[in-house]
Computed example of a mutant assay.
Amino acid sequence: MTDLKSLKKLLQLYEDIISVNHRTEIARELRDEDDLFLFLCLSETLGLPNPAYYYTLELYPYMLGKFHDWHLRMGMDKSPLTGFRCC
């Protein structure tokens, strides 16, 4: 059991050493991917055709929290969409 714990600690230390210089880049890439996904899901409400609108419609309740953070990060004080009232 202690060998397993020490192995997990060693693997965590290795991962930390490898990613220490790239944490901000990784966080930025993940944020950009989230922004793109949010844009694609909400493109229909922005006036752009979305071929997967039917499949992304059920994701809207889960995206409300992320949408608020997104529009604030994009420099919009209030929600630009009439259907999404998050503020």
Rank of each mutant, 00 (worst) to 15 (best):
Y53R: 10
P80T: 04
E33A: 15
P49N: 13
S79I: 00
W70V: 04
D35H: 03
P49H: 15
G75L: 01
Q12F: 15
F67Y: 08
Y60C: 00
E25P: 02
L13I: 11
M63C: 04
A27Q: 06
T82D: 14
L13H: 15
D77W: 04
F39D: 03
G75W: 10
L72P: 03
D34Y: 01
R73S: 14
L42T: 06
L48W: 05
D32C: 02
C87T: 10
Q12C: 09
A52G: 00
I26T: 14
D35K: 08
L48F: 14
G47L: 07
T56I: 01
L40M: 01
K66W: 02
F67I: 02
K9Q: 13
D35C: 02
L11E: 13
R85E: 10
I17S: 15
R28K: 14
D77K: 14
A52I: 09
D16E: 12
F39P: 01
M76Q: 13
D69Y: 01
C41W: 03
T24Q: 13
G65V: 03
R23G: 02
N50C: 13
P61D: 07
M74W: 06
Y60I: 12
K8D: 13
N21H: 02
L57V: 02
L48E: 01
M63H: 08
N21Y: 01
S43V: 05
L36N: 05
E25N: 09
L38I: 06
K5C: 05
D3I: 03
K8N: 14
D16V: 04
K66Y: 07
F67D: 01
L11V: 06
L36H: 10
R28V: 07
L36M: 07
V20P: 00
K78V: 05
Y55E: 15
H71G: 03
